[in-house]
Nucleic acid binder design. Structure first.
Length: 956
RNA sequence: GGGCGCGUAGCUCAGUCGGUUAGAGCGCACCCCUGAUAAGGGUGAGGUCAUUGGUUCGAAUCCAAUCGCGCCCA
């Protein structure tokens, strides 16, 4: 089965019809007794004059896409008059790695709906898609390919392979995106690996340095002592490992206020990495946790109250006494002494301390842990890291440890020393998950290394960023809380990575004195080289290649330099797109009007972009930011390979078509997480079919209609037609508001309801008599067509941003005077307030209430076998006020132009003033059935079997 | 463990400032039509508004806790 094509298995609808047919044959109803056949005299819609019922989107969509390419639709959209000015939606770059997934489809479809709808609303909407090319995932994938071939590439070879790899997936994804029907600058997308982009990154880095944001500092990174390299989080594998769990007592030299005992007071810590003890600089407690003073023999230990019992049990101590308790916050300012060195270890406060295990006091070594580092920074502690790249203690660790590998010798030595001084209270093996190197499986360590940073607090940067956030429109509004929290809490930005596939940090080091060189001049020279030759040049050429002739170290005057080997964090790449794309393309401008990404980007792209924008332009790079949720399965669970609930956009397009996928996007309240499953897709495909069939019917009935010559002036339309146009205006107002608010799901629901309820089940059904049976050129028929034309013209344009292929298919068949070559070059419909007749709408509300009552009455007459179907019925309505005065305005002759009878779907209808409740009496309509228009009327001629109207139409 | 959200019918969504019996479309069941036809029409049945507790004359709506789910962080 593919597409909306005929199913090999009968559908339920098909089966229902088949059974109904059998019943009719059995009951003999099928024996139609009409002798005359007037079918050919009717103005029936012809299949070849409208769109096919079966869309076959998987095959047809590529044809429309080819058509758009052929006419250069994107260029024409930009050239279309834009009275409302430019609207810049800046594309967040996906990573050029692998096929697109359903999240990409959601994101890009929303962007396409925004771009197309703004264009149709009179904005110029350039859309330049982009890709994020540098970074670890590609480098790792490429390195793996080399490994599998048993090769060890040098940095240049690796980088070249990475570039090729990225280029390949740009092509793959571009095709997949275009298959979704996305319109944009696909021939000239932006790539973060473009030479000009790479050069731009170097210049922005230089700008930030010039403004004082950039500094070098220490930061603990996960380090593999075997590979001797820093590892990214993605390269870490957690495996079970048995470590040494030790409890260590730190003697207090400055007790907290109100301590119940000052003599022999000790603070207890617990750690599973004894080798970090030499780097201890503080003891962290939670400010709100309750701590206890516990007397054991002659000593008093301080630890979390909740952990006293388990800790004493671990020690095998039964005889202890809690002397008192104290809240953690009160401990700040107390000072302990390092058990091995003559060094202070102050008590500090930290939120991440828990009373889950250990003692509730965290041994803090700023050089060996990310949290420890942050705490150390807050308290102004130095970053002590007495471990070298090989994982061997340096002289800083003290004479007793220097030269020992941290494990197992270092651990052993530290434990022995602690025991020797009496600080070790307990030691046992401990099994836990511990980070290991993905490559060589060595247990990792945190080690402080020199890195490049962007200061987030330089020159009030953080405060300015927070102020800028308040000036941005966040949709939905909760997004503001989220990004504000992310910016408020973020640490300085570590910009350097010890990787190959990225843009080199354009710094030089003096070989003689180690001075780091980063001047506007040197940065610009590097940038120019990269602009010419690509970022490889930085790794291919020696330092001299970039430095001016005779350049000397400003500190020691040496003339020998080496280059920085680190590359820029890829978030710096994507965070710079607003500068390097918006400012460099003539059709774009800075800042963007809109960013539209998943809500995870509050901490990602929205954040990194804001940091660079505040740092270099002192303003936010976006005026509004829309976030969407994630795509979950039918049960609201995350999609994952292991759960087997992944839906790929390729599959959906192959089976249903892009327009169905896009309609699903529009159907979702995307500000929250959205769900997708086979069941949901089936329902959306149903919705698509219903909307399509409504359009198909309307187009088919406009085949002989030319609005320029055939349209009936509004004032000459009958009440039903003017009601329809008034209702259309109400729908249109709702639809335009929904678009304005980016609430496409509201548009979807209202459109679906409008098509099914207002059009299919009512108006279009009612006007069939006029469309089919009245004379081709009669005012009655032309009036109905005038309305159908308005309906179709309005709906097609409103639907165009969401189901562009289908809307185009309809557009090409619509008799619009002077119509643009593509629906996407048309303007959205505008409200016609003069058609919004409030009084008429109110009167019809009554009429429609009566219609419901008639339907119920006819239905029960049908059930009671008093009539076979509505068209064989006559209804007599006893209508109390206020119904009567509304209904009685319409004459009810037993002829085809009995408007009420047509509205009620019966052959004849009469109205009388009634009392109390509305009453409907259903009877067999007198007269006989006209063989042409199928109405049962008294004036049907026995010979011709035609009613008077049909005789007149046929000239008989 | 922390931060930000979400939970209304089988599905997708409305539900304003707390105020009648919580709405819609689809789907489903039954029926009609065979001139929108692998279409179209009619009628009808579906809800403990996640759970529990509170505030209130009154709670889907406000508060708290719990459960489930997602994103971000640790």
């Amino acid at each position: 089965m593919r597409g909306i094509a005929p199913p090999s298995v009968p559908t339920k609808a098909f089966e229902r019809r088949r059974r109904a047919g059998e019943r009719r044959i059995r009951s003999g109803i099928i024996l139609s007794s009409m002798s005359h056949n007037y079918r050919e005299t009717l103005q029936l819609p012809k299949d070849e004059q409208t769109i096919p019922m079966r869309a076959n989107l998987p095959e047809q969509e590529p044809r429309w896409q080819a058509f758009w390419r052929e006419i250069d639709l994107y260029r024409r959209m930009l050239e279309k008059p834009a009275p409302n000015g430019v609207y810049i939606l800046h594309d967040g770059p996906p990573y050029s790695n692998g096929d697109i997934h359903i999240g990409h489809a959601l994101n890009k479809t929303l962007k396409d709906i925004v771009a197309r709808s703004y264009c149709m609303r009179g904005y110029r909407t350039p859309y330049v898609p982009g890709w994020d090319n540098h970074g670890l995932p590609i480098e790792n994938a490429v390195a793996k390919q080399f490994m599998e071939r048993g090769e060890t590439p040098d940095k240049i070879a690796l980088r070249r392979a990475c570039r090729e790899y990225a280029q390949h997936y740009v092509k793959v994804q571009r095709e997949q995106f275009e298959r979704l029907g996305l319109v944009g600058e696909w021939d000239k997308p932006y790539l973060t690996m473009d030479y000009a982009f790479e050069a731009g990154l170097v210049r922005i880095f230089g700008e930030l340095a010039q403004r004082g944001y950039i500094y070098r500092g220490l930061r603990p990174t996960l380090w593999c002592p075997t590979c001797q390299t820093a590892l990214a989080d993605a390269e870490v594998e957690y495996e079970e490992k048995v470590s040494d769990s030790i409890y260590v007592a730190f003697p207090v030299i400055k007790p907290p206020a109100d301590a119940p005992a000052a003599e022999n007071l000790q603070i207890l810590i617990w750690t599973t990495t004894p080798w970090t003890i030499p780097a201890n600089l503080a003891l962290a407690v939670h400010p709100e946790l309750e701590y206890a003073y516990v007397q054991v023999d002659g000593a008093v230990y301080l630890l979390a109250h909740r952990l006293v019992a388990p800790t004493m049990e671990a020690f095998g101590v039964r005889d202890y006494k809690v002397l008192g308790t104290v809240v953690g916050a009160a401990l700040e300012g107390a000072v302990a002494k390092h058990p091995l060195f003559d060094r202070e270890s102050p008590v500090v406060l930290a939120d991440y301390v828990t009373a889950e295990d250990g003692t509730g006091v965290v041994h803090t070594a700023p050089g060996h842990g990310a949290e420890d580092f942050a705490t150390g920074k807050r308290y102004g502690l130095p970053v002590l890291c007495p471990v070298d790249a090989r994982g061997v203690f340096t002289a800083e660790a003290g004479a007793a440890f220097a030269g020992l590998p941290i494990a197992p010798e270092g651990n052993r030595a530290v434990i022995a020393q602690l025991r020797a001084v009496g600080a070790l209270l307990h030691h046992e093996p401990y099994r836990h998950n511990y980070p290991h190197c993905w490559r060589c499986d060595t247990p990792l360590l945190f080690r402080a290394t020199e890195q490049w940073f962007m200061s987030i607090d330089h020159a009030g940067h953080r405060a300015r960023a927070l102020a800028a956030i308040r000036g941005v429109r966040w949709i939905p509004p909760e997004g503001e809380t989220r990004i504000a929290a992310a910016v408020q809490n973020r640490p300085d930005w570590c910009l350097s990575r010890q990787r190959a596939w990225g843009v080199g940090i354009p710094a030089f080091y003096c070989e003689a004195c180690g001075e780091a060189i980063l001047t506007p001049e040197t940065v610009e020279r590097v940038a120019q080289a990269i602009e010419r030759e690509g970022s490889d040049v930085w790794f291919e050429q020696p330092a001299d290649y970039f430095l001016p002739n005779g350049f000397a170290c400003p500190k020691c005057a040496s003339t020998r330099f080496r280059k920085e080997t680190d590359v820029l964090d890829v978030w710096f790449d994507s965070g710079s797109t607003h500068r390097l794309v918006l400012e460099t393309r003539p059709e774009l401008r800075w800042p963007a009007d809109l960013y539209l990404e998943g809500s995870d980007q509050h901490r990602g792209w929205f954040n990194s972009s804001l940091m660079i924008a505040i740092g270099t332009r002192d303003a936010a790079p976006y005026r509004a930011v829309i976030t969407h949720g994630f795509v979950l399965d039918g049960e609201g669970r995350k999609m994952s390979k292991s759960l087997g609930n992944v839906v790929s956009p390729q599959e959906v397009i192959h089976k249903y078509g892009a327009d169905v996928l896009r309609l699903w996007v529009a159907s979702c309240e995307y500000f929250e997480d959205v769900r997708l499953s086979e069941e949901i897709l089936k329902y959306v495909a149903d919705a698509y079919r219903q909307i399509r069939n409504t359009l198909r019917f309307m187009v088919g009935n406009l085949a002989d209609f030319n609005p320029a010559t055939d349209a009936v002036p509004h004032a000459q339309l009958n009440d039903l037609d003017r009601w329809m146009l008034a209702t259309l205006q109400e729908y249109l107002r709702y639809a335009l508001n929904a678009y304005e608010a980016f609430e496409y799901h509201k548009f979807y629901h209202e459109t679906r309801r409008f098509c099914n309820v207002e059009l299919s089940a009512f108006y279009l059904d009612v006007i069939k008599d006029r469309l089919y049976a009245e004379a081709r050129d009669s005012a009655a028929r032309r009036g109905a067509q005038t309305v159908v034309y308005e309906l179709a013209h309005t709906l097609t344009r409103l639907l165009a941003p969401i189901i562009p292929h289908t809307a185009e298919e309809v557009w090409q068949r619509l008799p619009v005077p002077d119509k643009p070559i593509s629906v996407h070059l048309a303007d959205f419909p505008t409200l016609r307030d003069e058609w919004l007749d409030k009084g008429l709408l109110e009167r019809f509300e009554r009429i429609l209430q009566v219609r419901e009552a008639v339907n119920r009455a006819v239905e029960s007459a049908k059930q009671e076998k008093r009539i076979p179907n509505p068209l064989s019925a006559r209804v007599a309505i006893a209508a109390p006020e206020p119904f009567y005065s509304v209904l009685s305005a319409y004459p009810t002759p037993p002829t085809p132009d009995n408007l009420l009878a047509r509205i009620f779907g019966v052959s004849q209808a009469e109205v009388a003033l009634g009392e109390e409740a509305l009453q409907v009496e259903v009877s067999v309509a007198p007269g006989r059935k006209c063989a042409r228009c199928w109405l049962t009327l008294p004036d049907v001629d026995a010979d011709t079997e035609l009613c008077a109207r049909c005789r007149a139409v046929l000239g008989i």
